[in-house]
């Protein structure tokens, strides 16, 4: 994964976390219009980035898997790094 792709995942994680944080705030402040707008703005920004990431690296959720082949089980899992997998191959 090159730097641009690492940055893309990082941005997805940032937006995703901001949504989680805002979701918790909205749970106890359901009438806050500002937070509501912020939540949906984050979601609008996130969606195309997920589409871009999926096209480059495969699905983040099973329903985003390719229609050409079941690539849900391909590629790295979130807890794997190039470092850990290289060590595995050396063993």
């Amino acid at each position: 994964m090159n730097k641009n792709d690492t940055d893309l995942m990082r941005r997805i994680q940032e937006l995703d976390f901001a949504m989680v944080e805002t979701q918790l705030f909205l749970d106890t402040h359901p009438d806050c219009r500002q937070a509501l707008e912020y939540y949906h703005r984050l979601h609008r920004e996130l969606e195309p980035l997920v589409v871009e990431y999926t096209a480059k690296h495969g699905p983040l959720t099973p329903s985003a898997a390719s229609t050409e082949g079941w690539n849900w089980i391909d590629g790295m899992w979130p807890w794997q790094t190039e470092n850990t997998e290289m060590r595995e191959r050396k063993r």
Binding site: P62, W72, I73, D74, G75, W77, W79
Partner: peptide, 15 residues
């Protein structure tokens, strides 16, 4: 699932 050796098995345990 973390230490399973293939995507097929990791995916099965995850799902």
């Amino acid at each position: 699932r973390y230490t399973m050796p293939s995507g097929k098995v990791i995916g099965t345990l995850t799902d």
